[in-house]
Computed example of a mutant assay.
Amino acid sequence: MSRSLILWIVAAFAALGVLLAVLMRGWMGPEMGVSGHGMFAFIIGAVLTLAVSMGLFLLVFHSARHGHDDIDPPPGS
């Protein structure tokens, strides 16, 4: 992967974290009952969920692109 792609991915995850923090504060109001640790756990959970789903999609596309999903003909045909 190129450095610019890695930079874009890191920036996307940072933007997601900020967006989740702002949305959570706006949705529950300034007097929400979630501590800083709870918000941190919420944001880390959302970012890790996105990372796992991206990784699985990349594996699926890599497998399909390199022919790992092709059906081999039966032997002797």
Results as ranks from 00 to 15, higher is better:
Leu19Ala: 13
Gly36Ile: 03
Leu58Glu: 14
Leu59Val: 06
Ala12Ser: 14
Ser63Gly: 11
Ser77Trp: 13
Ile6Leu: 14
Gly67Thr: 06
Gly33Phe: 02
His62Gly: 07
Leu23Tyr: 01
Gly67Leu: 09
Gly45Asp: 05
Met1Pro: 09
Leu56Ile: 12
Ile43Asp: 01
Leu19Met: 10
Ser77His: 12
His37Ala: 12
Asp69Tyr: 12
Val22Ala: 07
Ser4Lys: 14
Phe42Trp: 05
Leu56Trp: 08
Asp69Pro: 00
Gly76Phe: 11
Gly67Pro: 04
Pro74Glu: 09
Ile71Gly: 03
Asp70Trp: 07
Ala11Gly: 06
Leu7Lys: 13
Ala14Val: 15
Ala11Thr: 10
Ala11Lys: 04
Phe40Gly: 08
Val10Ile: 14
Phe42Ile: 09
Met32Ser: 10
Thr49Glu: 02
Ala64Lys: 14
Leu56Pro: 01
Pro73Glu: 07
Ser53Arg: 08
Ile6Glu: 09
Arg3Gln: 09
Trp27Gln: 04
Met28Cys: 02
Gly76Thr: 03
Pro75Gln: 06
Phe61Leu: 14
Met24Gly: 09
Ser35Ala: 07
Pro74Arg: 12
Ser2Tyr: 04
Phe40Leu: 15
Leu48Cys: 05
Leu5Ala: 15
Glu31Ser: 12
Ala41Lys: 01
Pro73Ile: 08
Leu59Arg: 13
Ala15Ile: 04
Met28Asn: 09
Ser35Asp: 14
Ser53Thr: 13
Leu23Ala: 10
Met1Ser: 09
Ser63Val: 04
Pro30Val: 06
Arg65His: 11
His68Pro: 01
Ile71Gln: 10
Gly38Arg: 00
Pro75Leu: 14
Gly45Asn: 10
Gly33Leu: 04
Arg65Gln: 12
Gly45Leu: 11
Ala21Tyr: 10
Ser2Glu: 07
Ile71Trp: 07
Pro75Phe: 06
Ser77Val: 14
Ile44Leu: 01
Phe13Glu: 09
Ile9Thr: 11
Gly29Asn: 01
Val22Met: 06
Val10Ser: 14
Met39Gln: 03
Ala11Tyr: 03
Arg65Met: 11
Ala46Glu: 01
Ala21Thr: 08
Gly55Asn: 09
Phe42Tyr: 07
Ala64Val: 09
Val10Leu: 07
Leu7Arg: 12
Ser35Pro: 02
Met28His: 11
Ile71Asp: 08
Leu50Gln: 05
Ala12His: 00
Ala64Met: 14
Gly36Leu: 06
His66Met: 06
Phe57Lys: 06
Leu20Lys: 03
Gly55Pro: 01
Met39Phe: 00
Ala21Leu: 11
Thr49Phe: 05
Ala64Ile: 13
Met24Ala: 15
Leu59Asp: 13
Leu50Thr: 12
Met54Val: 12
Pro73Gly: 04
Leu20Cys: 05
Val60Tyr: 07
Leu58Ala: 15
Asp69Lys: 08
Leu48Lys: 01
Val22Ile: 15
Ser4Ala: 13
Leu5Pro: 02
Ser77Leu: 14
Val52Ser: 02
Leu19His: 08
Gly55Met: 04
Ile6Gln: 13
Asp70Pro: 01
Leu58Cys: 07
Met1Asn: 10
Pro75Asp: 11
Ser35Val: 04
Trp27Thr: 08
Asp69Val: 06
Pro74Asp: 09
Leu48Arg: 00
Thr49Met: 06
Asp72Gln: 15
Leu50Cys: 10
Met39Leu: 14
His66Pro: 01
Phe40Met: 09
Gly45Ser: 15
Ala15Lys: 03
Ala41Trp: 00
Ser4Arg: 15
Glu31Leu: 11
Phe42Thr: 13
Glu31Asn: 13
